[in-house]
Simulated scan of single mutants.
Amino acid sequence: MPLNKAVLAAFKAASRLKPDIKQTYEAQRVAEDVMGKLSLPDPRCRIDEAVAVMRDGYEVPLRVFTPLDFDFSLDRGLKVVEDFRGTILFFHGGGWANGSVDLYIDACSTMAVKLERRVVSVDYRRSPEHRFPQAPEDCYETARQLFAGELLADVDVDNIVLFGDSAGGNLAAVVSLMARDRGEYMPRSQMLLYPVTYNDHDPRTSWFDSVRENGEDYLLTARDVQGYMELYCSSPEDLANPYLAPLLAPDVSNQPRTLVITAEYCPLRDEGEAFAARIDLESGEAACYRVLDAVHGYLLYPSVLNVVKDTYRIMKHFLDGDGLEQEDDPAWLELLGTD
């Protein structure tokens, strides 16, 4: 499905004018901070602050989004109660160097309401000030505390879902691998939205066609991904670590039930789909959807747009088994499933 020509022209112009992300990530943080302050969270969601104390004493900030139900009657007046069916532990995107819980306020509020889940958003330490493996260790320890009942007293561990987009999708996949390897807890489900799963995004050498097909003109460029990787790695040897590039893991068995959603015009599309295929082959339960006419990062777009609405339909079906009929709207394509 081709993008609108005017939109495609704007994407191309913006992509080709972008400076090196290694030189501009700090300026991008400033812009994102301004955008975060302009967020208007859904009033049907209560927002609370919390922290997870790491083993080195650092306090990782958390933001908790709880969906609410409003019941009004003449006899009792307005009654507001919490209304959620589980907990999503969310890791934001941004190439491990950008993004924040503030930037994702609107997205997490929408997520909580549409998926009927409480959302715990993790402000893990970012690169290059804190390089690999700090971010996955922060996310792993936060998840451990959530599963142990140390963060929220009323958590149902059978209904905790790991979720992340882009670099956050990478972190969700890595936390699941770490959890299996360390044996302290094990998530039952994970959702990965256009995740980073591989270590090579050079169009000349990458295994994946989407790096070449989508690596220049669709906002996130192959050069951006390479720059973020350089900011993230502590040493070149990190690139071979499965906790940085989970597709390199020699074994992805005993992983959670997994949903991978990719974007048609994203350079990370093929590596995300390859990771889903491996999970399906080695762990036996994965679903993968490609959202057509979509570019990387669309979770932050207004929730009224079809690509966002379709994504929530897919996630709700994965979580709740609600009906999902592809013929109703041809904006997405299932690549593999659990059937």
Rank of each mutant, 00 (worst) to 15 (best):
P133M: 14
G215P: 05
D123H: 15
V225H: 04
V260G: 10
R55K: 15
P61S: 11
D238I: 02
D33N: 12
P2R: 06
D310P: 04
N306P: 14
V81Q: 08
P61M: 09
D69F: 09
Y243W: 10
P133Q: 12
R85G: 00
M315E: 01
A167R: 05
G168N: 10
L162C: 04
G169V: 01
I47F: 07
L335Y: 11
E271M: 06
R46M: 10
G77I: 07
S210N: 07
A14T: 12
R76D: 14
K5D: 14
V34L: 15
R223V: 03
V64T: 05
T338G: 11
D154V: 03
L146Y: 00
R125G: 06
R16A: 11
C266S: 08
V7H: 15
D138G: 13
L62H: 01
Q23V: 00
W207K: 12
A31C: 03
L268H: 06
R188W: 02
G94R: 02
V161G: 00
V7N: 15
A148H: 09
R85K: 15
D339M: 15
S253M: 05
C233V: 15
F318S: 04
L103H: 10
A249K: 02
Y301H: 04
R144I: 04
Y185F: 12
A10L: 14
T205L: 14
R204I: 05
C288V: 10
P19Y: 10
E334K: 08
R290A: 13
D328H: 06
L305A: 13
P2W: 07
S39R: 05
K316P: 02
H317Q: 00
Y194L: 03
R182C: 08
Y232N: 07
D181T: 06
T24L: 10
D280G: 15
Y265C: 06
R29Y: 02
H130T: 09
A9F: 14
D181V: 05
L78G: 04
G272D: 04
D20E: 14
D328S: 05
F91R: 11
P187I: 01
A31Y: 09
S166Q: 01
C45D: 09
L268T: 04
D270K: 02
V211A: 02
A13H: 05
P267D: 07
L239H: 09
D83C: 08
R131G: 06
Q23I: 06
E184L: 12
L248K: 07
W96Q: 05
V252G: 01
D320P: 00
D293K: 13
Y185M: 04
Y194I: 03
R269D: 00
K5N: 13
R313S: 04
S253V: 04
L89C: 09
C139R: 02
D339Q: 15
G169Q: 07
V122Y: 13
R188I: 03
A135E: 10
L162W: 08
L268M: 07
E26I: 02
F163I: 06
T205Q: 13
S127A: 15
E325Q: 14
G86E: 00
L336G: 09
A14I: 13
A31K: 12
L89A: 11
S176Q: 08
Y124K: 11
G168F: 09
R126V: 11
D106Y: 08
P330C: 12
F84T: 01
F72V: 11
D270L: 03
L62N: 03
N159Y: 00
W96I: 02
M315A: 06
L244T: 01
P133I: 12
E282S: 00
W332T: 04
N214A: 03
G321Q: 07
V304R: 00
T24Y: 12
